[in-house]
């Protein structure tokens, strides 16, 4: 197994995913298999190949600095689980 349970727990924490206890063994196993599978890349003859982030060789376009969006708060907030006074509510953030 290339990943341990602890590894998977750490990854799940980073990704903020709760994994049910009974599903944990399956995740450890399938993720290990995926990691083993992509491990093939380690032998790839990349030499000095340039990393390719985009399929097309283009540059970023510039948008003109103009305000064209209008206030749609009420429309947007119909989708929100909890709002009050125009604010999105979340459980208390403590820092």
């Amino acid at each position: 197994m290339s990943l341990t349970r602890k590894d998977v727990e750490n990854i799940a924490w980073l990704a903020r995913l709760e994994i049910a206890e009974e599903q944990m063994p399956d995740f450890v196993e399938t993720l290990s298999r995926i990691v083993d599978f992509v491990e093939q890349l380690s032998d790839a003859p990349v030499a000095d190949a340039l990393p390719m982030a985009h399929p097309l060789d283009m540059n970023q376009r510039f948008r003109e600095d103009r305000v064209t969006e209008r206030d749609e708060r009420d429309h947007f907030q119909k989708n929100a689980p909890a709002v009050e006074a125009g604010l999105y509510l979340v459980p208390r953030v403590i820092e």
């Binding site: 970023q60 376009r61 510039f62 948008r63 003109e64 600095d65 103009r66 305000v67 064209t68 969006e69 206030d71 749609e72 708060r73 947007f76 907030q77 006074a85 125009g86 604010l87 999105y88």
Partner: peptide, 30 residues
Amino acid sequence: AASTEFGAPPNTQACAVDLGYPGVLPVFNG
């Protein structure tokens, strides 16, 4: 293309892109 003006009522200057709605994309302000 939402306004950056300071002091507006909450979330009235947050468009779909600023809210991270599904499917929206960023376009850079030159």
